[in-house]
Design a protein around this nucleic acid. Structure first.
Length: 288
DNA sequence: CCCCTCACCTGTCAGC
DNA sequence: TGCTGACAGGTGAGGG
């Protein structure tokens, strides 16, 4: 499942292999993959036809490519999405949903492949005056912690104001973007925070520590997964080597905590799972 | 307004 | 062998 580091790898691949090219045609092979393009698939294809693709941008797990001064193509990979630059002659993937062809002689196309169709592509209006072509529909997404413009003070203030728990807050994209279930558990383990810690009890130094650990865990993942983009493939798959080697909490139920040896526990949480060390990350004394 | 739950989607795997 | 259900989880609509 692509999280921020994987999406950043995709962004770099798009920048290298797609930016600057002119779209010849866009074919929609699965309606659900363009459901966020409210004007429908024909309008989606028409908006892309003949457009010159601009610089590749990312905020959290969203990607966008400016098409004109007023419109950008937005991509979200969801749970299983991939953007692949393939030789035009390569066989059609089982879950190919959208294909873009280009008006040049490079001989490659851009394919959106998505088994579970949680992700999608859509064209949206740009925030007026936004030089990076930021689509208005993404304006509410907070900066991510790898972004120079990430505002740690504002994040801390928002945490203090909320009456919720820390892991919910980490997954709230309007507070901080790019953190998914896996990196939330990893960062909380590194910070020795229980996932149900009330956000209102966070101190400024504790927030700073947490943000540092989020940056580190994402940076480690980017370093481990960032080697494959220098190829013909704009590759994302959840099987990056990082996941196999470097996780301390996520997916390690009953395995010993790498700090204290206590078995890692798994708890059902919001229709998913939370993994934590019951000794390093004790349950907060108060639940409110 | 704020917070929480759940639908959406498909492939894999454990258990019967 | 074949069926059933749990699980994976980002996002946003809708309910309380």
């Amino acid at each position: 499942m692509p999280e921020l580091p994987e999406v950043e790898v995709v962004r770099r691949g798009l920048a290298r292999w797609v930016s600057g090219r002119t779209v010849e045609a866009a074919s929609v092979l699965h309606l659900r993959s363009v459901r966020r393009h409210l004007a429908g698939p024909e309008d989606f294809s028409a908006a892309l036809k003949g457009a010159e693709i601009g610089e590749a941008h990312r905020r959290g797990k969203y990607l966008w490519l400016p098409l004109t001064e007023q419109h950008s193509l937005v991509a979200h990979l969801g749970m299983s999405g991939q953007l692949l630059v393939q030789p035009a002659t390569a066989p059609t993937e089982t879950h190919l949903r959208v294909r873009l062809t280009f008006a040049d002689s490079a001989g490659t196309d851009l394919r959106f492949v998505d088994q579970r169709t949680f992700g999608g592509l859509s064209v949206h209006e740009v925030v007026p005056g936004a030089e990076d072509g930021l689509p208005a529909v993404l304006a509410h997404i907070a900066r991510d912690p790898l972004d120079d413009a990430f505002d740690e003070d504002a994040f801390h203030t928002a945490l203090r104001r909320k009456r919720t728990t820390i892991k919910r807050a980490l997954l709230d994209q309007s507070l901080i973007s790019g953190v998914g279930n896996i990196y939330a558990d990893e960062a909380l383990w590194r910070t020795r925070l229980h996932y149900e810690r009330p956000t209102a009890t966070m101190t400024r130094p504790r927030t700073a520590e947490l943000v540092t650990h989020i940056r580190e865990v994402m940076g480690d993942a980017l370093a481990a997964g960032g080697t494959s983009f220098d190829s013909l493939y704009v590759n994302v798959n959840g099987e990056s080597g990082y996941f196999d080697r470097s996780l301390d909490a996520y997916g390690r139920e009953d395995e010993p905590c790498r700090r204290c040896g206590t078995p890692i526990r798994r708890r059902p949480w919001m229709n998913r799972s939370s993994y934590f060390c019951p000794r390093c990350q004790p349950v907060p004394r108060t639940a409110s």
